[in-house]
Amino acid sequence: MFEARLLRSSILKKVLEAIKDLLTQATFDCDDNGIQLQAMDNSHVSLVSLTLRADGFDKYRCDRNISLGMNLSSMSKILKCAGDKDTVTMKAQDNADTVTFVFESPNQEKVSDYEMKLMNLDLEHLGIPETEYSCTIRLSSAEFARICRDLSQFGESIVISCTKEGVRFSASGDIGSANIALAQTASVDKEEEAVVIEMEEPVTLTFACQYLNYFTKATSLSPQVQLSMSADVPLVVEYRIPDIGHIRYYLAPKIDD
């Protein structure tokens, strides 16, 4: 028996919003520790890695490890039926071919259940090597979303360049070019608005705007985002989801011809 209950359905709704542009289907691997999802998009340019820890749920029970293959557009349709303040419970029997979502209104006067067919997905677990990154940049997630949106008007790529002076985001195309430079903040009123840079070596890499914009769909999950870069390896864009886990996106850089 698998059962996971969240007091607010909004976290699960936001998680779905944050992955459904990249993935059409994915396996939720559930064990004692919580729920893990790891999948590459169809073109193998990006990878999503989601962790929801068991201790972040209001109730969590997983008697046997279970892999729930879900069609994410179907799951998204079902989660749209939940009110933001509803409690959501995901349930599946061992060896089940369906998963059930139960939504309860705050006063318990409305209880809905939705049963969804599971999919048999080929399990391809990827080992993500431990990497020491040359640069890590922490900034407001809303600021990062705005930068990606603004620069997308200029071209298909964003160049991210991190030095000890700060981080620069650049784009260029038919209408001209744009540069946004952020310096490390000396002092801020709100910690989540700080720009914090840790740099061992300067790094400059080029990434596709389209994917960065997909990643920023996770903005509402976390006030801050962390970018990790090293030469010639995938960028990591991490949103920590308060009290329950994180979503990490990996993106292969563009290569100079």
Binding site: L47, I128, Y250, K254
Partner: peptide, 14 residues
């Protein structure tokens, strides 16, 4: 110009 890289090769199938 630039070409979009792929993740294959960075991550090993377990």
């Amino acid at each position: 110009g630039t070409t979009q890289g792929r993740l294959d090769g960075f991550f090993k199938v377990q």
